[in-house]
Structures are given as C-alpha cells and as structure tokens.
Amino acid sequence: MNAISALLRRELTLAMRRRGDALTALFFFVIVASLFPLGVGPDPKLLHLMGGGVVWVAALLAAMLSLGRLFAADHADGTLEQLILTPTSPVVWIAGKILAHWLVSGVPLILMAPVLGIQFGLSGAELAVLMWSLLLGTPALSLIGAIGAALTLGLRGGGVLVSLLVLPLYVPVLIFGAGAVDGAISGLGSEAHLSLLGGILILAFMLTPWAVAAALRISIE
C-alpha cells in the first residue's frame, strides 16, 4: 500500500509539472468530437442519435494517444528498470501506474464529456449515462492499452504501432459504452450495457497487470 501511494504521489506530481501533456489529449478529444458535426451536417436529430457514439470514439482515440506517456519517460531515464528491480511485485506498481495514468488522462475526459454531449443535444439523463459509461469504460481502456504501450516501448514508429495493436482490443469497450448511451436515447435502458462494461473492467483489472508485467520484462531485457 505504501508503495502504491508513493508511486501515485510521484506520478501525479510529474503530471502536474507537465500539465500540457494531459491538456493536449483533452483538447484532442474536444476537437475530434467537434469535427463530426462539420462532417455530417448540423441536423439536430441526426447529431442526437450519433452523439453517444461520437463522444465515445473521440474518448477512445484520446485515451490511445495518451498511452505513449505511460511508460516512455520512465523507460528513457531508467526509472522503469529501477522499478523492476524493487522487491515490490511488478503487478502492484503497474496497477498503480495505470491508476495514475487514468486519473490524469481518463478523468478529464469524463468531466469534459457532458460539455460535448450538450453540443450533440443529449438530455440530462442521457448525459448521466454517458458519464457513467465513461467512468466504467476509460479505466478499462487504460488497462488494455497498457499492454500495447509496454510491448512497443522504445520501438520506431511505436505510436502508430500501438494503435494497430490496441484499437481492435478496444472494440468491446466501445460497443458497450456507446451502446449504453444508445440504450438511454432509444428508451431501451442502459443497465445491461453498463453491467457488461463493469464486467469488462473487472476482467481487465484482474488480467492486464500480469500481461503488462510480462510485456515490460520482454521489452526491457
């Protein structure tokens, strides 16, 4: 527990000192979502139907873009090797790092999402479902993406490569996340989608830290 809180403090301090990084991903999110009405036209009905999906796709891309920051800086200055050498199980500090990454990159997306949802004409209840789905979905995105980030550490073209590795794995999260909002819009209800999202999150939380630990060992050695 001590190790995790120390690591969290360190990660958050570093993130506070490089606020620009998190803000860039956040503005990317806003810009991508704002481009869709320009592309498909300003029809409010159409935008209302598309809103949940568009915000979700934009959130997914923004989450993917910020994956590079997860391990790259620590890899470059040798911190990662020191972390691997510590007696703490890698699964523990990897979970801590992913949590910190989500706090910095995922939570701002959740807080910004209602603003974008209003642009697409979502109602209050629909906005609430959107936020719930993002609250359950973005940690899963961080967890799954961490595998890709760990495998592509230090590779040329790592950024493009990570998208090829990670985006297919994001498909279920996208389907249930956007599906929850769709369910709220169409009146079918969104509990089933949210439950499935929660299931994915639990599964990802149980399995991915082990996979990331294995991936880091492969990339570092």
Binding site: I147, L151, L165, P168, L169, P172, I200, L207, A211, A214, A215, I218, S219
Partner: peptide
C-alpha cells in the same frame, strides 16, 4: 512480444 500479443488476442476473440 508477438507471442504475448497473440495470447492477449486469443483471450479477447470470444469477448
């Protein structure tokens, strides 16, 4: 690395 991503993929395919 390829082996790991193949295994991660195989867990994900049914999902």
């Amino acid at each position: 690395a390829g082996a790991l991503i193949a295994l991660v993929g195989v867990v994900n395919v049914p999902i």
